[in-house]
Write a protein that binds this DNA or RNA. Structure first.
Lengths: 206, 206
DNA sequence: TCCAGAATGGACATATAGTCCACGGCGTGG
DNA sequence: CCACGCCGTGGACTATATGTCCATTCTGGA
């Protein structure tokens, strides 16, 4: 905290009011300090970092930028860095979360100028929805720091929720591809999906 | 030309170098005047307006904004207006084409700031691909100024080409929906599609 | 009026989407 | 150590969607 605190503060000041900077304690899995908090998190709260491989000196030390979603729909660009003392021991994890909403609003203003009634008829669907699946899965894997093979049942459920929300399964041949990416069988896929959609009757307006 | 010319010039001056303003003669189907031309068109060249219903006093007089694509890939926002004399006779058609490229570049700069490695994991696919189909069809209809029912075979072929290029048919249930939007039967749809993909072996990397 | 090309509905064949179930691994607690 | 429950798996099976084909009807032009 004494060594890394100024770093966090400096980044927070530089990036202005739209960047949240968090210093985590990887051992206690708690928040050490936080600047410009976006939620209600404060020092001492659990980090929810997952494992992040922070303890493995051979692992990568910088993650992202990847994307996070806040409950209110704001999109964040996030980067994380593992901070080590001279011995190589991870003493802290620094996370910077930049709220992209204002930037996107500005971009939208520009795009809307003289815009056709609907913005982009051309690039249309993700041509490469397969890679998109890989990306969603990959993002989750990075978030919890475990390779695909070691994902828990709950993890896979969460990934499937994202994919389903993204209407990935409205694309032909998506189910087998997703099952492959998730290293589970097609049966299991459908099982998890059913479990996911069972409790609350989903809007199936695909 | 004498009455409407100043209007065109004024609009051209207001919108700066990125807006092309064209005055058409709907009877001769020729260009009367053009400011800030984007292509090599000049006065006297054919208008290529299609019918545009300019001669029908009961039809709408303002079209767009809709989207046009230039050969070099630039995207334009276009509006058209039928200009009439006091008797209601259409004496001219005014078209304004705004090059959206610079605006979009600026928007891209903003969006790229702090962007995740891949830009938009969230909104993902067009949730409402059905409306998207309607839009592509609608855009084409506006372009040639004929309602869906009066499209020629070639027109439908062209629309299908756009839809196919946009990988619309990689979405489940798309074929019946498109057939409906185009007011043709599913059989005809597949017939036209086959005709479309037959000559050149398409890249089927969906 | 007749003809050619095109559209149509429906029969059909195939592929894909989902469901279901019996089996086998695996950790847990008795 | 074994029995039990949980979960993943493959495979059979059904339902639905996709794509093909054809006889018929429609339409515009000679």
């Amino acid at each position: 905290m004494r060594t890394w605190g100024p770093v966090g503060q400096a980044v927070a000041l530089l990036l202005g009011p739209y960047a949240e900077v968090v210093l985590h304690d990887p051992d206690a899995d708690r928040i050490l300090a936080i600047w410009n908090p976006m939620g209600s998190r404060g020092p001492g709260d659990p980090s929810l970092l997952g494992e992040l491989d922070a303890l493995d000196p051979s692992a990568r030390d910088v993650f992202g930028p990847y994307e996070k979603l806040l409950a209110d729909g704001r999109r964040l660009s996030s980067v994380s860095a593992v901070l080590r003392d001279p011995d190589g021991k991870a003493t802290a994890v620094l996370c910077v979360n930049l709220d992209r909403t204002p930037l996107e609003q500005a971009a939208a203003v520009l795009s809307a100028f003289g815009a056709p009634t609907t913005p982009r008829p051309e690039p249309l669907f993700e041509q490469d929805w397969n890679e998109r699946v890989q990306h969603i899965v990959g993002a989750y894997v990075r978030e919890c720091g475990r390779p695909v093979e070691r994902l828990t049942r709950a993890d896979r459920l969460a990934v499937l929720a994202r994919l389903d929300e993204a209407r990935v399964f409205a694309v032909r041949r998506a189910a087998p591809a997703v099952a492959g990416a998730l290293r589970i069988s097609r049966s299991t896929l459908y099982g998890l999906l059913a479990e996911l959609r069972a409790p609350s009757a989903k809007d199936h307006t695909a």
